[in-house]
Design a protein around this nucleic acid. Structure first.
Length: 473
DNA sequence: CTATGGCACGGATT
DNA sequence: AATCCGTGCCATAG
C-alpha cells in the first residue's frame, strides 16, 4: 500500500497522498494503530510527540492546546456538540488494554473482539487488580448466551476467596454492556436489566415481581396464572410480559448488535471497540454531547526535526534511503491529519443531525444518506463511505453500534412498526399495518412491512394470536 | 380466498 | 461498477 517511486516528481506524491489518506480513513482505530506502530518502528524519520493532559480534568489533549471540555464557552448551545480527539487507551475505561493479558489465547489486540475481551475492557478500570483473575475466570466461563456456565461458588473455591468477592466482581460485570452478561440465569439477567433500566426511566414495579417470583409462568406465557399470582388481571399480566419482552433480553449475548437474524448456521456476535464515543456533558436532557474520536496514539506524529537536519550529512550509501524515509514520514503525518480532520468533522455533523437518535433511541433516527453528508462537508461521497465503514460508535446509553446505523433509512419505520405490533389488541396483518404506518407518515408497501417484520424477527399475524416472547430461536 | 414469503426487477446508494 | 433496498408479481400454505 505504500507507493514509492525512484524519481518522486510532485504528481505521484500527490496521488500517493490521496491513496493513503483513503486507505487510512477506511481503517478502524484498532487496525490503524497496528499500521502506525509498524511504521514508527521501521521509520527513523517518524516521531511520536507525547501529548499533555488537561490540568483540571486530567483529560489527554491530542493536537490541541486547551482542553475542549474545560475551556468550552459557557452555556454552549445544546445542539453544538463538543468534539475532539482522544487516545484510544483512555477510552471509557482508563488503561483497559492492559487487562487483556489476563485472558488466555488473546495475545494480540484482536481485530474483532470476542465477548470476554469486550466486557473486560469495560470493567477493567473499576476492577481492583487482585480481582482480575476472578473476572477473567468468569468471562471465560460464559456460554453462548452470555450467561455464566459455572456456579460462582466454584470460582470462589478455585481461587480460594470468599464468595462475596466473586459476587462483587460479578455485579460489576453484569452491569457492563451487554447488560446482564455473566448472570448465572436468565432470571438474574432480567433483574439486572430491570434495575439499570429503572435508573433512567421507571419500570413497572410488577415487572420486578413477575421476574423474581413467576419466571416459569412468564416464560411459558401463562398470563392467566401470572395475573393471579401478581394479583392483577390477565390483561395487565400480558402488558407486564410485553414490557419485559420488549425491553429486556434473557440472553445478554444474543441480539446485541444483531448480526444473528436470518437463520444463519453460525450465529456470530461481533463486538467492536468504538472508534467514536458519545456521552453527555451532564445528565440534563439539554446538555451538549461530548464526542470523542479515537486516535491510536496518546499524542501526535511528526517528522523528527533532527532527522531532517541530519539529512544533508547522510553517508553516501544511506542518502537515498534516508530521503525515502523522510518522504514516507511526511506523507503519513499529512494523511493522519487528514484522517483525523475528516473523522472529527463527520462525527460533529452526525452528533448534530442525529442528536435525538443518540439520546432517545431508534425511533428518532433521521433517514440521512452519505451523499447528503458529503455535500454538507464538501467532500466526495466515497470519503464519507470510507470514513463510516468499519467504524463503531458508542452511545451515551453504553450501546455500541456500527456507524453505518446512522444512515439506516428504514430504522425509524421499523421501530414504528414494532410499536404498532406491541400495542395491537388483535393481530394485525401486513396490509393493515401498512395502512396504519402510512397514516403515521411512513408510506410503505405491504410487501415491505413483511420484510421489516422478518428483520425484526416478528412472526406473521396468524402466529401472533398468542403473543410469543422473543428470545431463544 | 387471504395472508405471506420467494424471486426478480429497477432505482437509489455506495 | 457493485450493492442494497423497496416493491410488484406469483405460487402456495392455511
Amino acid at each position: 500500500m505504500l507507493i514509492q517511486r525512484q524519481t518522486p516528481s510532485l504528481r505521484p506524491l500527490i496521488t500517493a497522498h490521496l491513496a493513503q489518506t483513503m486507505t487510512l480513513l477506511g481503517l478502524s482505530v484498532m487496525e490503524l494503530q497496528q499500521q502506525i506502530d509498524a511504521e514508527l518502528a521501521a521509520n527513523p524519520a517518524l516521531e511520536l510527540v507525547e501529548g499533555r493532559r488537561c490540568p483540571a480534568c486530567h483529560r489527554p489533549l491530542v493536537g490541541v492546546e486547551a482542553c475542549p471540555v474545560c475551556s468550552r464557552p459557557p452555556h454552549l448551545a445544546a445542539d453544538e456538540p463538543i468534539v475532539f480527539l482522544s487516545p484510544r487507551q483512555d477510552f471509557r475505561v482508563g488503561g483497559g488494554v492492559a487487562a487483556v493479558e489476563d485472558l488466555p489465547d488473546d495475545n494480540a489486540i484482536p481485530e474483532v473482539q470476542d465477548l470476554p475481551g469486550y466486557v473486560l475492557r469495560q470493567v477493567a478500570a473499576e476492577l481492583r487488580p487482585e480481582d482480575r483473575p476472578l473476572a477473567a475466570h468468569i468471562l471465560t466461563s460464559l456460554d453462548d448466551d452470555g450467561l455464566l456456565a459455572v456456579p460462582p461458588a466454584e470460582i470462589a473455591l478455585y481461587h480460594r476467596v470468599p464468595l462475596a468477592r466473586v459476587n462483587d466482581v460479578l455485579r460489576l460485570i453484569q452491569r457492563a454492556d451487554p447488560l446482564g452478561v455473566g448472570s448465572p440465569s436468565p432470571q438474574e439477567a432480567l433483574l439486572v436489566q430491570l434495575e439499570v433500566l429503572n435508573e433512567t426511566r421507571p419500570a413497572p414495579p410488577l415487572a420486578f415481581e413477575a421476574v423474581r417470583r413467576c419466571m416459569d409462568l412468564l416464560s411459558r406465557h401463562r398470563y392467566q396464572e401470572l395475573g393471579r399470582a401478581l394479583g392483577v388481571s390477565s390483561a395487565a399480566a400480558r402488558q407486564v410480559a410485553q414490557f419485559i419482552s420488549d425491553n429486556l433480553n434473557p440472553y445478554p449475548a444474543r441480539a446485541h448488535w444483531g448480526e444473528i437474524r436470518s437463520g444463519d448456521s453460525a450465529p456470530v456476535n461481533v463486538y467492536h471497540e468504538p472508534d467514536v464515543v458519545i456521552s453527555r456533558l451532564e445528565q440534563r436532557e439539554d446538555a451538549p454531547l461530548v464526542v470523542e474520536v479515537a486516535t491510536p496514539l496518546a499524542g501526535w506524529l511528526r517528522v523528527n526535526p533532527l532527522f531532517r537536519e541530519a539529512l544533508p550529512q547522510a553517508p553516501a550509501d544511506k542518502s537515498e534511503q534516508w530521503r525515502l524515509d523522510l518522504e514516507r514520514a511526511e506523507l503519513l503525518v499529512k494523511c493522519m491529519q487528514q484522517r483525523n480532520h475528516t473523522l472529527v468533522r463527520l462525527a460533529r455533523r452526525l452528533a448534530v443531525l442525529q442528536r435525538d437518535f443518540i439520546l432517545q433511541g431508534d425511533a428518532y433516527l433521521q433517514p440521512i444518506t452519505r451523499a447528503q453528508l458529503a455535500q454538507d462537508l464538501g467532500v466526495h461521497e466515497s470519503t464519507i463511505s470510507r470514513a463510516v465503514s468499519d467504524k463503531a460508535v458508542q452511545l451515551p446509553n453504553g450501546h455500541i453500534i456500527p456507524m453505518s446505523s446512522f444512515f439506516d433509512r428504514s430504522r425509524q419505520v421499523r421501530t414504528a412498526l414494532k410499536m404498532l405490533i406491541s400495542q395491537e389488541t388483535t393481530a394485525l396483518n401486513d396490509n393493515d399495518l401498512a395502512q396504519l404506518l402510512s397514516r403515521q407518515g411512513y408510506a410503505v408497501a405491504r410487501r415491505t412491512v413483511a420484510k421489516y417484520r422478518a428483520m425484526e424477527g416478528i412472526l406473521p399475524a396468524h402466529l401472533r394470536q398468542r403473543l410469543p416472547a422473543r428470545g431463544a430461536p
